[in-house]
Simulated scan of single mutants.
Amino acid sequence: MVQGKQTKCLDHLRPGDTLVVYKLDRLARSQKQLIEIADRLREEDVELVSISEQLDTRTAIGKAMFGMIGVMAELERNMIRERTAAGLAAARARGRRGGRPKMNPEKIRYALSLYDAREMTISEITTETGVSKSLLYKELNKRNLKQATE
């Protein structure tokens, strides 16, 4: 969903307002997000004007053009979904499995014990054990949550 500065801006809009942006890519990071914002603006009776794209939803042509942008974005999402599904099916047919490889639980326990010993830095622990920094922190957080609930 929409986050950050966009949320602050959108939260201040009232029915009948017009949101003016220099360029649509300054309003949203992705086509999906742009569609979500457009839906929100429509629901809240707020118009949109983009200076660079010369798009103005206060006019019939502007509304139609913005609708076309939405249709093209949906088409792009569907094509990506289809290509992804086809790629995964082809990989499975070749005997490949998706996802990250599972980390050896012994390596994780060893990394945690090195962390608890406080004799090595995180970088040294990851180099020594092969456990990534993100996985080490994830396991530490899991352990801390478990201890907090006990």
Rank of each mutant, 00 (worst) to 15 (best):
L48F: 13
Q31V: 04
A90R: 06
L13G: 01
E106V: 06
S52I: 00
T127R: 14
I122S: 13
K63D: 00
R100G: 06
A85M: 09
R83P: 00
I108E: 05
T18K: 09
L140Y: 07
G70E: 10
A60V: 13
I37A: 11
A148H: 05
N144Y: 10
N141K: 09
K133V: 01
E106G: 09
E36T: 05
P105G: 13
L135I: 12
L55T: 06
S30T: 13
T18C: 11
A117S: 13
R94E: 06
G130A: 05
G95H: 02
P105C: 07
E128R: 10
S30Y: 10
K23N: 00
L140R: 11
G98W: 11
V21C: 03
Y22I: 08
Q31W: 04
L41C: 13
D116R: 09
G95T: 03
R96A: 15
G99T: 04
A90V: 01
L19S: 10
R29H: 04
Y110P: 08
N104R: 11
E139I: 13
I125C: 05
E53G: 07
Y110Q: 15
I80D: 12
G70F: 09
K133S: 03
F66L: 09
G62D: 07
I37W: 11
L135Q: 15
K133N: 06
V21H: 03
L114P: 15
T121K: 15
Y22K: 09
T149N: 10
L135R: 15
K142M: 04
E47P: 05
N144D: 14
S132P: 05
D11R: 06
A89F: 02
T149P: 05
R40M: 06
M72N: 02
